[in-house]
Computed example of a mutant assay.
Amino acid sequence: MTGSALVIGIGNDFRTDDGVGLAVAAEVARRGMPDVEVISALSDPGQILDSWTDVPLVVVVDAASGPDVVAGRIRYWIPGDDHQPTAVSSHSLGLPEIYALGQALGRVPRRLVVLTVEIEDSSHGVGLSPAVADAVPTAVEAVLAEVGRQP
């Protein structure tokens, strides 16, 4: 990692709405911003830890599922928040757990912002549901705002 910010899109394009993190990351990458690296991950904790260690700013975008979700709603989580969300990821190991593992190993970014997009469908298939697809531009703008705050 050579830039000042890293954007990580997490998800699976073959699990319908679970691909939203990848869709957001792809759109951010298309912007070609200097000093911003964009990667996509299938939620492999090792790959994430290798990528984000000591990076000035990391913005992770992932799908979230669980009770009381509203498809397309975007939420933020920052380590140290008093209100750790109950549904941070649609995967078995969520970002709070990966971050805790990174802390234990001394492999964390200097600043981490997690954006989750709540999803309604993670069944096998390709393509986002309309509500989740509609949230992609807003999520992209949220990522760009976070990157723009970076000195």
Rank of each mutant, 00 (worst) to 15 (best):
A29V: 13
R15H: 06
A29C: 09
V7C: 07
I10M: 09
T16D: 02
D17N: 01
V7D: 05
A25T: 11
G32V: 10
D17Q: 03
F14S: 14
V7P: 06
R30F: 00
A26F: 02
V28W: 00
G11M: 09
I8M: 08
A23I: 01
A23Y: 01
A23G: 08
V24H: 02
R31G: 13
G19H: 05
I8Q: 06
V20Y: 06
G32W: 00
R15F: 03
N12K: 09
G19L: 03
D35F: 06
D18Q: 08
D13V: 13
G19T: 04
T16F: 06
A26V: 06
M33Y: 00
G11E: 09
A26M: 02
V7I: 14
R31N: 11
E27S: 10
A29F: 04
D13H: 11
V24G: 06
G32L: 04
R15T: 09
A23S: 13
I8K: 04
V20N: 05
M33C: 07
E27G: 05
M33A: 12
R31E: 14
E27L: 12
A29G: 10
A5E: 08
A5H: 08
D35H: 11
I8F: 02
G32R: 06
A23M: 05
A5Y: 08
T16L: 05
M33P: 10
P34Y: 00
G21D: 10
A5D: 11
V24M: 05
G11V: 11
A23K: 05
A29H: 10
A26Y: 02
N12I: 10
L6D: 09
I8L: 12
G9A: 11
V24T: 12
R30L: 01
F14R: 14
I10P: 03
G11C: 10
T16Y: 07
D18N: 09
F14A: 15
E27K: 10
G11W: 04
G32F: 02
T16G: 00
D18R: 04
V7H: 07
G9H: 04
F14W: 14
L6H: 11
G19E: 04
D18F: 07
F14K: 11
A23V: 04
A25V: 12
D17M: 02
A5K: 04
I10F: 03
A29I: 09
T16S: 08
D13T: 12
R15L: 13
R31T: 15
G19P: 05
P34V: 04
G9C: 09
R30G: 00
G32D: 11
T16H: 12
N12V: 07
I8E: 04
D18I: 10
A23D: 11
I8W: 01
V20G: 03
D13F: 05
V24Y: 01
G32E: 10
D17P: 02
E27A: 14
R30W: 00
G19A: 15
V24I: 12
V24L: 03
G9M: 06
A25D: 07
R31C: 13
V20Q: 05
V20K: 02
R15W: 03
V20P: 03
G9P: 02
A5C: 15
R31I: 12
D17C: 01
I10Y: 02
M33T: 13
D17E: 04
V7N: 07
G11Y: 03
F14N: 13
A29T: 13
G11P: 05
